[in-house]
Design a protein around this nucleic acid. Structure first.
Lengths: 245, 245
DNA sequence: CGAAGAGTTGAAGGAGATCAATGGCGGTGG
DNA sequence: CCACCGCCATTGATCTCCTTCAACTCTTCG
């Protein structure tokens, strides 16, 4: 099974030029593959991680636990992402990871990664860059959830996910997988579930997008982008591809 | 002038054990020191950075520009912080930096940092860790601005800043510098300025804190912590110091 | 002395939270 | 096979918190 390696390489190449030696180093990594079912938690807040996680297929979410038992979702990760390169240097997880839909995930021992970093520093830098990209997405989430009205907030999230899905080659025609419930959307965007529903209904009525059967369908990219005040520069993609639709 | 080096070393030691060789490498770094006045912008969204920034004294803010000319403040940085280690790997700044009060800032050429990373990989890892800490703070900001009611939101921000100021040895008695206006607080927490004022008035009335003449005064740390639902684990400080007051 | 900026306060209105009820769908067990 | 349950989406009604707008003060600075 070499898929995990390929998926990681493709993702890193999105923003970094890797030497053949780096590719070899990556292909030499060993990992454990595990499948999770929808909404299964597999890393908990408070855990002391010894492995890094690579999304091989499906989607993975990161979340904070709230006092009342609720969650705040922080980020969503697609095929090729390393949702917790963070954990590499952190004693104790300050957030949890769960599968959004069914997902398969590769666990890579920290020890092995550190050895690879030593042998190929440029590989380490690529992963570093990956974590900085992550941080840029967090920053945008702060702005999104703090400064944008509900409709724009939701539209922006859809834009980002679709744009990233496109880079991850997960878009088929005008749709990409997005196995998320309304409640989870609410816990992502900081809005009540009733508002999620009404806002989503508005967006559907606008004809810009739809969300059905775990798939996000973008009907009018330009409109959705405008509604969401979305500009993809913060994603820092190297090969700035032409607009999705 | 060696202060800049010391300040960086102290900050990194907060979470990482550095070898003497690392210290030497840091002390060998050359930099340009610049002073800025209150609210002066010194790195703009869209810039292509060739230097990293180290806060030597005062406070530095990071912000997104909004469509209407407004701002969303993303993070505040104290003495010893590297507010844009992000910029190390990023072609184009997705956010700006400004001085909050009067601040002096050291600019370190990226080129020099990369050379130092090559010679002392552990120094690179320390900076990497620093950027991950940054990301943890961003995550908490997402949760703060999305899931907490106004009063808790504000109290949480004050807790975090006071806690970090303490680690940076900026706390004198029960107060630390915080040269921020109500408008800026609003642009940080995603609330209207009138609400900022009223919420701040509540907090003052509770007797837990005060904010006067650019200083944050914590009168009852426990109360403020409770009001803000604040628990400092996400700051990942190595030497978990006893509570501030 | 006047203007500009920051803080303060009141009143009004609205956007979104909350509460509640309904319908659909899939799974489970009688 | 069908009844029941739980989960999810949907919708309406109400209420509250926050935004908006406006006026006023205080200080600083020209």
């Amino acid at each position: 099974m070499e898929k995990a390696h390929d998926v990681l390489i493709r993702n890193l190449c999105e923003h970094t030029a890797l030497a053949p030696e780096d590719l070899a180093e990556i292909r030499a990594l060993t990992f454990t593959l595990r499948d999770f079912e929808s909404n299964e938690d597999f890393i908990r807040q408070g855990d002391e991680p010894e492995h890094s996680v690579l999304v091989v297929s499906g989607m993975v979410a990161r979340y904070h636990l709230l006092g009342g038992g609720g969650r705040q979702y922080l980020a969503f990760h697609l095929t090729g992402d390393l949702p917790d390169a963070q954990g590499l240097f952190i004693d104790q997880m300050d957030h949890g990871l769960s599968a959004l839909g069914p997902a398969s995930v590769a666990f890579i021992p920290h020890r092995e990664l550190f050895i690879a970093f030593r042998r190929r520093p440029s590989f380490g830098l690529a992963i570093w860059r990956e974590t900085l990209l992550d941080a840029a997405i967090f920053r945008e989430a702060i702005t999104n959830n703090s400064a944008r009205p509900m409709q724009a907030r939701m539209a922006h999230l859809f834009c980002e996910l679709f744009y990233r899905a496109r880079a991850a080659q997960l878009v088929r025609g005008n749709r990409c997988p997005l196995p998320i419930s309304l409640a989870q959307l609410g816990e992502t965007l900081g809005m009540a579930i009733a508002t999620v529903n009404r806002t989503l209904a508005e967006l559907r009525r606008s004809g810009a997008m739809d969300l059905r059967e775990g798939e996000l369908i973008v009907l009018k990219w330009r409109d959705l982008q405008r509604l969401g005040d979305f500009s993809p520069t913060y994603l820092h993609q190297k090969r700035q591809s032409s607009p999705p639709a």
